[in-house]
């Protein structure tokens, strides 16, 4: 199968620079401090945030007077793919994603304001259709905002790859991931245009890295606008006098 046909459309009918449909919702759970649900195409992710709270038993050793300890956990639901697959906690893929997530979030959370405390971020991929990690980062940002945790700014992630004829393509679906070559995932701080994380599934030739990275960052910018709008409408909703404080 060709990633891009001669008419310049991708397999699902998108143009190379078009994102999948994004839907998001903040404050979906009431028992947690913050929560969010993000849908990017068929990829669906829930993020939940607890904290800041005092450092709990197992992590006690990580207590620091300099700042809060961010505890991340990324996992995929057993039903997230077309075939049910029970994953043990801490398999290699999830562990890697957890580490990356921690690195990404640590770049934006103002931990120095919350010494000797802990923030928990739990991610559950409910449905997997490519770009899981990017959707997870976006969901985590929204959940952190919902929890009212001080952030430097948003952190937004997006994927990009190369299509037929070496055209960069943004927001890679599962089908494109499995057909195509390398996928690049980038997490950026959109206002300051800083990069928090770059990850590649395979090697790119140096010539392609720049256009693909640019494409992914363009995707981040657009995603940022969508999420920002969602946050704004959510805040104006819960901020209204008649339902103050209720999510």
């Amino acid at each position: 199968m060709e990633l891009l046909n001669d008419q310049g459309l991708r397999l699902d009918g998108r143009k190379p620079d078009e994102l999948r449909l994004i839907k998001c919702k903040l404050g979906i759970f009431t028992h947690t401090d913050g929560s969010a649900f993000v849908e990017q195409g068929n990829t669906k992710v829930i993020a939940v945030v607890y904290g800041p709270h005092e450092v709990r038993n197992v992590h006690r050793a990580k207590t620091s007077a300099d700042g809060a300890f961010v505890n991340c956990q990324y996992s995929m639901a057993a039903f997230s793919m077309s075939e049910r697959k029970k994953r043990n906690r801490g398999d290699r893929k999830s562990t890697e994603a957890t580490i990356h997530l921690h690195q990404t979030l640590a770049a934006v959370i103002r931990t120095e304001l919350m010494p000797k405390s802990q923030i928990d971020v739990f991610i559950e991929v409910l449905q997997s259709d490519g770009g899981n990690f990017a959707a997870s980062v976006n969901a985590a940002t929204l959940a952190l905002i919902d929890a009212g945790i001080p952030l430097r700014e948003y952190v937004i992630a997006c994927t990009a790859s190369l299509g037929t004829g070496n055209v960069p393509m943004v927001d890679i679906s599962n089908l494109e991931e499995s057909l195509g070559g390398p996928t690049l995932t980038v997490a950026v701080l959109p206002r300051s245009s800083q990069i928090a994380l770059v990850e590649m599934s395979q090697r790119f030739h140096l010539d392609f890295l720049e256009p693909v990275l640019k494409m992914a960052m363009k995707g981040c910018d657009y995603t940022f606008k969508v999420l920002d709008m969602a946050v704004e409408s959510y805040l104006s909703e819960i901020g209204k006098p008649n339902n103050w404080g209720q999510a």
Partner: peptide, 8 residues
């Protein structure tokens, strides 16, 4: 397997 793909 049930395969679901988006079609824009």
């Amino acid at each position: 397997l049930k395969i679901v793909r988006e079609h824009y």
